[in-house]
Amino acid sequence: MAENILPEKGLSSYRKVRNALLGSLTAVAFILAVTPLLAIVYIAYDRGKAALSLSFITTLPGGFPIGIEGGIANGIVGSLILILLASLLSVPVGIWAGLYLWDQSHTRMAKITRLLSDLLLGVPSVIWGVVGFFVFSTNTGFGFHWGFSGLAAGLTLGFIMIPIVTRVTEQALRDVPRSYIEGALALGASRFQVVRGLAIPAAITGIGTGILLGVLNVLGQTAPLIFTNYYNTGIPTSLVGSNGSVGDLAMQIFIYIHEPSKALHVKAMAAALVLTVIVLLLDMGIRLLAWGSRKYAQRMG
């Protein structure tokens, strides 16, 4: 009697098989997801290792077609110049806007600003290129008429960075405990004193993370450079005007990979490996910074 009421022991074989199949399906998908990403790093190393050496990083390209000899010093120097210019524009503006969004977060204006800043995060990079071209590079109509130059490209990349720095700054400021801010205000501090002496120092790791995140995002940007800078095989002497173009790692990879030459493809993969390593190291730095500040915050209670 009791045996009839109790369910069958164990699962039916259909459910057993289904259980195992679906489980292994997820594992296969996981392998499919991770393998290509790792393959990119491995193939960049495998195909580029013939060109890799210390002098690859420190010499300028030469030979014909240009780049067949020498290295990528122009690209590294140019990328650094561009990042510096982009940061010079976006760090002050981004922090400024972030402070505004934090301080007056409940006003209607701030809500609109926050929405538009978030929208700017989703603007495709070609559009930034077009905008940069018409604002900085074009020689007709309105704009700065700087031609294809490092300054134009750097500031265009700065445009891309502004919404990122703004967003992260606001978030970092929000993480400062309200009791600190209110305490300072209650003691009679002016809002400027609160911002300068309390909010920014407390949020400085977060803001630094935001700046690095912005740099990470613009480091490999190629499309905007096609519109505003193009490329230079040497180290530029000026940043504006007809010979103001700078080299750039991403542009260099793009140009080398476009050439029908095996030797240049090897150089391109080596340059891609260098760029990837820089990006991954920067990313790791950001994570360590964020992790460290979290630890610090925990210790401080």
């Binding site: 990403l37 990119i40 490999g220 760029l275 991954l280």
Partner: peptide, 16 residues
Amino acid sequence: MLAGIPSIVFGAFGII
């Protein structure tokens, strides 16, 4: 982290 690899590197990987 790997999602942060620049698009141009993905393109080069594609060609190679």
